[in-house]
């Protein structure tokens, strides 16, 4: 006896599928790695164009030499109050400087990559923004990326 009564029936409940695994092996010890931050938290230089809060797939470069008071957040998808008090809550670049000083990591990248996650055009993020950020970080000689989001 077949259990299928009606062919092509689908669940009314959205059942997300986890995509296939991706994996880039670590090639050197942590204390020799150059680390960059990539954050979906909507951090950017005050001099930069703000993100469009209703959805934005563009990204910004943040020089590592930027002072905390010259950074800001534009992101409509989470409570910004902590990150407005201390940018390191989502963009912990000052902690990376300390980790480099203490010899835990090899160094900090000259430039970090930032965007506004949690929405927007997912196809653009997957096929354009993501690969563009990846290519940029590669060209900067980055060995590992620390991310905040999710």
């Amino acid at each position: 006896m077949s259990y299928t009564v009606v062919k092509g029936m689908q669940s009314e409940i959205f059942a997300p599928v986890t995509p296939p695994p991706v994996w880039a092996p670590v090639k050197k010890p942590l204390n020799q790695m150059i680390i960059a931050i990539a954050t979906a938290a909507g951090v950017h230089c005050k001099s930069d164009e703000r993100f469009n809060l209703s959805g934005d797939f563009t990204w910004r470069k943040v020089p590592d030499s930027t002072k905390p008071e010259d950074l800001m957040v534009s992101h409509g998808g989470y409570d910004n109050s902590d990150v407005n008090k201390d940018i390191n809550c989502m963009f912990p670049y000052e902690r990376l400087h300390e980790l480099a000083r203490d010899g835990v990591i090899g160094g900090v990248a000259k430039t970090h990559a930032t965007f506004m996650g949690g929405g927007g055009n997912q196809e653009k993020f997957k096929n354009e923004t993501g690969p563009a950020i990846a290519e940029f970080l590669k060209s900067e000689g980055v060995d590992g990326v620390l991310m905040t989001a999710g």
Binding site: A38, A40, P131, K138, A149, G150
Partner: peptide
């Protein structure tokens, strides 16, 4: 997450604080 996966796919290892 799409961006993390894209960076990883390009050959740079990544980790996210979630």
């Amino acid at each position: 997450m799409l961006v993390q996966r894209a960076i990883e796919q390009a050959g740079i290892p990544t980790i996210i604080i979630a």
